[in-house]
Measured scan of single mutants.
Amino acid sequence: MTDQQAEARSYLSEEMIAEFKAAFDMFDADGGGDISVKELGTVMRMLGQTPTKEELDAIIEEVDEDGSGTIDFEEFLVMMVRQ
C-alpha cells in the first residue's frame, strides 16, 4: 500500500470502505479485481455520462499508481477520497 493509499484509508470509516467496495465490485464486471477502461466506460454510460476514450484513459491514469492500466481497489479508494 502506497502512502497515498494509506492516507485515503485514514479518511474513511470501515462502513464507508465497505460501501466503496460494493461500488467497486459493480464497476469490476468481470470480477478480475480491477477496473478496466471498458468497465469504467460501461458504468459511466449507465449513469448517463458519455465519456470519450481519452477521458476514460485520463481518469485511470490519474490514479493508476502501479502503471497497470487499470484501477485496483486501493487506487479506487484514492480516487473516491479525491472527489
Rank of each mutant, 00 (worst) to 15 (best):
Y11L: 12
E74G: 12
D30T: 11
K53T: 11
F24Q: 00
V37P: 04
Q4S: 13
Q49S: 14
P51F: 15
G67D: 06
A58M: 10
E75S: 12
L40V: 11
D66L: 08
Q49E: 15
S10F: 04
L56T: 10
Q83R: 06
D72I: 07
E65L: 09
E75V: 05
Q5F: 13
L47R: 01
R9Y: 05
Q49R: 12
L56H: 07
E39M: 08
M80K: 01
Q49K: 12
A8M: 08
M1C: 15
A23G: 05
E75W: 02
Q4P: 03
V37Y: 15
S13A: 10
A8E: 09
K53D: 11
S36I: 01
R45E: 10
D25T: 07
D28P: 07
M1A: 10
E74C: 04
M1F: 02
S10E: 11
V63W: 14
T2W: 05
S36L: 13
D72V: 06
V63D: 06
R45V: 14
G48T: 03
V37A: 06
L12F: 14
S68V: 12
L12V: 06
S13W: 04
E61I: 07
E75F: 03
M1K: 14
S13D: 11
E62C: 10
T42G: 13
D30I: 13
S10I: 08
D66G: 07
I59H: 11
A58D: 03
T2A: 14
V78M: 11
V37F: 04
V63N: 14
I71N: 00
E54I: 12
E55M: 04
R9H: 07
S13P: 09
A22T: 09
L47A: 08
E62T: 13
D72R: 13
I71W: 00
Q4G: 07
D30N: 13
I17T: 04
E19L: 02
D3M: 12
G32N: 11
Y11C: 11
I59S: 02
A22N: 15
M26R: 14
E61D: 15
E7T: 11
K38W: 07
M16W: 02
E15I: 09
E15V: 09
I17P: 00
T52C: 12
T50E: 05
D66S: 08
S68E: 03
G32L: 10
D25M: 09
L77T: 10
D72A: 10
Q49T: 09
L77P: 00
R82E: 06
P51C: 12
Y11D: 03
G69E: 06
S13L: 01
F24P: 01
E74P: 02
G48Y: 01
D66F: 11
V43F: 02
T42A: 11
G31Q: 02
R82D: 13
F76C: 01
T50F: 11
Q83S: 13
T2K: 06
T52S: 09
L47K: 00
E14L: 03
L77N: 01
Q5H: 11
A29C: 13
S10A: 06
Q49H: 15
D72M: 10
E39C: 11
G32I: 15
M80L: 05
L56K: 01
L56M: 02
F24S: 00
G69I: 02
S13Y: 01
T70F: 07
D72K: 14
E61C: 15
D66E: 07
T70M: 14
T42W: 04
E62D: 14
R9S: 10
S36P: 13
I35L: 07
M80V: 08
A22W: 05
I35G: 00
A58C: 07
D28M: 09
Q4T: 11
S68L: 11
Q83V: 15
E62I: 08
L40F: 02
E74T: 04
M26E: 09
A18I: 15
D25C: 05
M16S: 11
F73Y: 07
Q4W: 08
E62P: 06
